[in-house]
Design a protein around this nucleic acid. Sequence first.
DNA 1: TGCATTAGTATACAAAATGTCACTATATGC
DNA 2: GCATATAGTGACATTTTGTATACTAATGCA
Lengths: 122, 122
Amino acid sequence: MELCPPNRSPGCPVEGALDAIGGKWKGVVLFHLLDGKKRFNELRRMMPGVTQRMLTRQLRELEADGLVHREVYAEVPPRVEYSLTAKGETLRDIILALKAWGETHVPYFALSKPRLPEAETA
Amino acid sequence: MELCPPNRSPGCPVEGALDAIGGKWKGVVLFHLLDGKKRFNELRRMMPGVTQRMLTRQLRELEADGLVHREVYAEVPPRVEYSLTAKGETLRDIILALKAWGETHVPYFALSKPRLPEAETA
DNA sequence: TGCATTAGTATACAAAATGTCACTATATGC
DNA sequence: GCATATAGTGACATTTTGTATACTAATGCA
């Protein structure tokens, strides 16, 4: 295991991929960014339960992994827009597959999903 | 968030799916089980770095989620075989997609992969 | 007799991830 | 003047995850 990078050291590609998207909120953030750029508070409102601090952290990690782009506008009040990078885009199919799997196999969702117009599901 | 099951309460299907496969070793365990049943120590040898305790825990959680089947043989020395359930099998494509993504996008793997015969990669 | 093997469990502890709460700056609307 | 909104940060508490070590019981092998 000594050939691995100092901080993160996955032992196999599956683990490596899960490291990148496996944070508590990362999958959800990526999912929301699939349909275009979002502002910080916009994301926050989309995920009730996430705290400001956690959202910031997850976004920073996604940025560090090159999956998300952060664009700061020097305005007041501040405006920051998050979007997927090209690398982030390569996760699209996986995220959508995870969503589909969750909908049919996670008990909580497998039950009560009377076909909503996609916006409410996450 | 009060409509969720007591212990696990993902806010969206993506999160729910990641809960199921997102443990430190779950993805890897599932990956190894893709090609058939494995004994406890067999899995352990396949993942250097995992401790007995962690492997036990991850397997128990996978079992609780209905993804893995645990078959105990009343022998001495004990023999326990782990295999994917039908539900676990439904993750095959996702696991393989994660592996492929990791191989091309996780820096550590993206570098030095001179096409190994699949057995060594994880 | 003593040691190895199997699939764990118990205990204690360390570290990492996640969470809460209060705080910031500046401009706009009332 | 005061509240509101934005996108955060800092100190701290808690929860989850991981580690190390020792222990189990029945059998095979030397």
